[in-house]
Computed example of a mutant assay.
Amino acid sequence: MTDLAARPRAGEVEEPRVEVAPVRPGEELDWAALEAYLRTHLDDLDGEFSVLQFPRGSANLTYRVAFGDRLLVVRRPPFGKIARGAHDMAREHRVLSRLYRAYDRAPRALLHCADTSVVGAEFFASEYREGVVVWDEIPESMAQHPDAGRRIGFAVVDALAELHAVDPASCDLADLGRPEGYLERQVAGWSSRWEAVAEYASDREVAELVEEVGRRIRADVPGSQRAGIVHNDYKVDNCQFPHGDPDRVKSVFDWDMATTGDVLVDLGTLLNYWPDRTVDPDSDAAFIVVPGMHALDLPSRAEIVERYTAGSDLDLSRIDWYEAFGCWKTVVILQQLYARFVRGETTDPRMGQRGELVAPLARRALGLLPA
């Protein structure tokens, strides 16, 4: 597969190693307008205003805003052309202003601003939670625990299973989506997203490879078994743990694509991102993972499926389709990020590397699907 310069392994994407950092050049907002808006619409913001950025995300711009000792999280979409339905701050606010009542891993959203004149786009603010996200090594506070990596992995899938057990009506989210026909609409929508960025493929052969994945996905859509809340980007590094505790996920982040639909889409997404130590990371079975995650000694993908199955009555015999669908969506997202870089809509150099993973990930998706 394609090697990525200055990365420890092919298929691994280098990320910053800090939680927060100074704001990247070109990703500054109108801080005075943001400060004034937040002070006007939220209580108890009396301290000195300052901003740092969460640098490890790839799309939405996420900032840690401080008013003295009071910390908030502010999120807005990336700059540039946005795919229809993507980076939906109103949706993320809606989910997080309600879901916390039934699922305590959801940080509580505090306000949504639809006035794009404040910072150039819609945004929302939520509570800030202290904790640790597992990226490329076992956190120092967990290092003394035996089998910490395996425990982290099982905690991640347990938190997903608990989300899927939530009754959307219990937190006023019954009308978040339309479960009937969900998979068919998802497949059609991601097909359209690919078409919008296909021109940025490195060559026609790569474009045809991705299009063949889409053809096989569309040809064999499984029947949905259960509707529930779907996160739609569930993975290890969207989970936060308490310091020193590898056995429980404290928070789950990035809810802008959340909906109600076929819950197995989330499990397929998780498997797509899973840094499986049983698979050669330099083979054509490419995974997009943070450097170092292969060394965490997480459970295998088979063990993750088994763990999820143990607490569910769902038939997982078609899970390969869901994993391939998750892989295909990742291919499209990578192409969108690369297109944004080519169009000059981001200065983040990582985005210029995203296109290199399109072909190997498409080949992995094909390997999961019948011809």
Rank of each mutant, 00 (worst) to 15 (best):
A10I: 05
R64I: 08
R56T: 13
L42W: 06
G85N: 11
V20P: 01
S58D: 01
E14S: 09
A102I: 05
T40M: 10
F79W: 09
R101C: 06
L45N: 11
R24G: 02
S58L: 15
P78H: 14
E28R: 10
H41L: 12
A90G: 06
S58T: 07
A86M: 03
F79T: 04
E19Y: 07
G57T: 04
A86R: 02
V13A: 14
L34S: 05
V73I: 13
A32C: 02
G57D: 06
D46K: 03
E14P: 03
D43P: 00
Y100M: 00
Y100C: 03
V65N: 01
A106D: 04
P16L: 11
A90R: 13
H93F: 15
R75D: 01
A33Q: 09
Y63F: 10
E27R: 05
K81M: 10
R64Q: 14
A90Q: 12
R101Q: 15
N60V: 08
L29K: 04
G47K: 08
S58E: 12
V74C: 05
V74H: 08
P8S: 14
V20G: 00
Q53V: 12
L52Y: 03
A36C: 07
R70H: 07
G80L: 14
P8L: 14
V13H: 12
L71G: 00
L99I: 02
L72A: 01
A86V: 07
F54Y: 11
E12K: 10
F79N: 12
T62G: 08
L52K: 12
R24Y: 06
T62E: 14
V74D: 01
V18D: 06
Q53N: 01
R56S: 15
L42G: 01
G85D: 06
E12Q: 13
R70D: 00
P22Y: 10
L61V: 05
Q53T: 08
R101K: 12
A33G: 06
M89T: 02
L71E: 11
A32F: 01
T40L: 11
V73A: 01
L45E: 00
L71T: 04
